[in-house]
């Protein structure tokens, strides 16, 4: 059985709420030891996921519901996100990042999500809407930095 999330939030599909979510993720990731670049990219990936729900799922409507559940995961340490909505269903097989040689605005969000996160899985919810599961783990370098810091603290 999946344990309860460490954090669960429900937001409306309003673009102006995204900045608050980015701040939350940055703070959480800082506490876990993610380096700045990875914190930034993780916030960006979650932002892109939420933007896609607003833009494509709810087609710009601002009264749609989006649920964000966050777990701290161990071994290897990281964060797991589940983003759920009640928007229109999309065939997960059709969710693809566009080819980057095709230089045009738009379609970058899925590419950013797949490049940034260790896992990204889209699925249709049985009760309607979509569920996106994302996992981001600490890199070896980040883990070593945490170990070095804790050894330094222990020797003091």
């Amino acid at each position: 059985m999946t344990p309860e999330p460490d954090i669960s939030i429900r937001i409306f599909s309003e673009p102006q709420l995204l900045a608050s979510i980015r701040s939350l993720i940055d703070t959480l990731a800082t506490g876990l030891g993610f380096f700045e670049k990875n914190r930034c990219l993780m916030s960006l990936a979650i932002d892109e996921a939420l933007s896609n729900v607003i833009r494509h799922g709810y087609e710009g409507r601002r009264d749609g519901m989006i649920w964000i559940h966050i777990w701290r995961v161990a071994e290897p340490r990281g964060l797991r996100f589940v983003i759920e909505d009640l928007a229109r269903k999309v065939d997960p097989a059709k969710i693809k990042g566009r080819h980057l040689a095709d230089v045009r605005p738009g379609g970058l969000g899925v590419h950013i999500i797949k490049e940034t996160m260790n896992e990204a899985t889209w699925e249709a919810r049985p009760d309607g809407g979509m569920r996106l599961t994302l996992v981001k783990r600490l890199t070896d370098e980040e883990r070593q930095a945490i170990e070095s810091a804790s050894q330094g603290n222990a020797s003091q």
Binding site: K37, C40, L41, L44, H111, I112
Partner: peptide, 9 residues
């Protein structure tokens, strides 16, 4: 931070 976003795209 903005550079990171550019680089990944």
């Amino acid at each position: 931070r903005v550079q990171s976003a550019f680089e990944i795209t």
